[in-house]
Amino acid sequence: MLQQTEGLHLSARSLRIERGGRAIVTDVSFELASGEALLVLGRNGAGKSTLLRALAGFLPLRGGEMVFTGGNAPLSERAHYVGHADGLKSALTALENLQFWASMLGAAGKFTHGKLSPQQALEKVGLARVGDFPVGYLSAGQKRRVALARLFVAARPVWILDEPATALDVGSQERFAQAMIEHRASGGMILAATHAPLGLLDAKELRLDKELRLDAVASTAGAC
């Protein structure tokens, strides 16, 4: 099972992503291989989330190209995405939410290395006690931990994380940093946007705010 993660490679060349007709991300390139991590850095509005959402397949690329090698499934079916919205139904319990996503996201299924049962995943994020509790009653940090537990119930080699440590306490952050180290050690790949340090060692960095993009685009748009 392990060798399937070994040959992973993601390369992006001069990506261009637009939202509402405006270029938010232009000319972004990077290379990433198995076991490596990419930290997307930049101030608010620099396009970190937009870039990650496009990589996850929610937004179309308007230019450049992205090549993902590793299995015959496209990147969006080999990747996990944890964004600002948790993807949890507040009426269902934490366990029911995880069981649902395990069955939906695990459908690609041949890659099973490191897959945990929903109960084990909750134990891993330290929420074993609240598994049968409706998610609506959980605190923001606990909800985030349930969302992160989704990373473990379906084994996918690429993790796309948009501010994953939001609302996490110090202990949970350390536990999550440890989980990311294990994921990379087993050949996985991590792309994360963050302001806070995540504990990703020797990660590649991608800075998006070389210039004031939004303002620059606005002024050219005004000139047209």
Binding site: A56, G83, G87, M104, L105, A107
Partner: peptide, 17 residues
């Protein structure tokens, strides 16, 4: 609407279904 608000809709796009 509910799935769009809580992010489930994004995740549906990442399934092989």
């Amino acid at each position: 609407q509910a799935d769009a608000d809580d992010g489930s809709l994004d995740l549906f796009m990442m399934t092989s279904t």
